[in-house]
Design a protein around this nucleic acid. Structure first.
Lengths: 202, 202
DNA sequence: GTTGGAAATTGACGAAACGTCATTTTTCTG
DNA sequence: CAGAAAAATGACGTTTCGTCAATTTCCAAC
């Protein structure tokens, strides 16, 4: 048979348990809110014992970080794809914003508390979120070096783009139905040409 | 006669106690981080009994909200001043960004944990933060109505400006020393003219 | 100025959640 | 299959929670 499965039962259940905790945590946070949720609430959402939780995470805080890291890790290849397939700087920007807005729409759970009470307003600094930031900044620096974009402070510009994405993304989710294309067009225009570049209202 | 000062001892100590709790909370959050801090840690920072805490706030979460609301309440008149004294739209934008960046530099406590570790993972929508958003959006709408700015989606634009301010503000704080003027020039240029409007690097 | 009562404070208490750890169960390996 | 290593378990002592009856403080009416 296909002996190309270097994964033993040990590692497999370990990964499954970790994932089960993360899934349960995501649901519990959405339902109860971060502060009200307890480690026991989370572990009750799995078939594990309370002590087992601490084999995987040190605290509720750490689970939350892992969730954020997980999201960033899933978004990163999407962002990379947008970068590699871009035919121009404008194309890259638009693709990246659109990819992010699509991502948050997909990640947005239908049930649970109102959006304002469940999303982290603060960007967590996890390895993967830092990598996303770095990826953005490098793309921008590359474009500047290649003369496709004016040479400005790449750090500030990356932060600004991320801030725009986060806040416009949240605003988009509050509208029904969320219009990914419109949001992406707005963000891209704003960054490229400022107010003058954003889609005009009639 | 002297302006009516209907403040008896009751109301005075009540206000003082509330303030004492907020001050202690600010310090405790900065020192221990939001998650590690307990209601008892906060109340120990005052000369009040543990039960008294619950006469003022229902939970640690609510104290944090009050802190955020407090900050927004202090920033709002500053923002209003920037709006009223602006001679043009560009002037308003620049003044508002500069005021915000100054504000965060002043509010940033010198001691405590690194900036990334001391904020909570809850999204804050308090009356005053909503009012700040509203103020921003109205200023933008006014400028659009007056023809000083292109007519774009005011909600998105307000969110984008706030996102830029937050993220660029954080990035600015990570630099030593923080340069308020440079950050304000960057943000203003970006919003007004996009990349082309941001200060160029030599 | 005294006094009755409303308002606020207090700290002790039971409940709930925490994090640990000795024990048991599962998995790996030789 | 046996012994060892790894992981899971849940009971336990500890810490924090939120409440509440008792106490203190303040106000206002007399």
């Amino acid at each position: 048979m296909a002996a190309i499965e270097p994964i033993g039962k040990r590692e497999k259940t370990k990964a499954a348990n970790r994932q089960a905790i993360l899934v349960a945590a995501r649901r519990v946070f959405a339902q109860l809110g971060y502060d009200a949720a307890t480690v026991r609430d989370i572990i009750r959402g799995t078939d594990l014992a309370s002590g087992t939780f601490y084999n995987y995470f040190r605290s509720k805080e750490e689970v939350y970080e892992a969730l954020a890291d997980d999201s960033a890790a899933r978004f990163r290849p999407i962002l990379r794809h947008a970068r590699e397939n871009a035919s121009s700087f404008e194309d890259y920007l638009h693709g990246a914003f659109r990819a992010y807005f699509r991502f948050v729409v997909e990640e947005y759970p239908e049930e649970g508390r109102p959006i304002d009470e469940r999303l982290p307003h603060v960007r967590l600094d996890t390895p993967e979120t830092k990598a996303v930031y770095k990826e953005v900044r490098q793309s921008l620096e590359e474009a500047m070096a290649g003369g496709q974009a004016p040479a400005v402070d790449a750090d500030y510009l990356a932060c600004a783009c991320i801030g725009i994405a986060q806040e416009v993304g949240s605003a988009m989710l509050r509208r029904a139905p969320p219009d990914v294309e419109a949001a992406a067009a707005f963000a891209t225009g704003l960054v490229l040409k400022g107010l003058a570049g954003a889609p005009h209202k009639t």
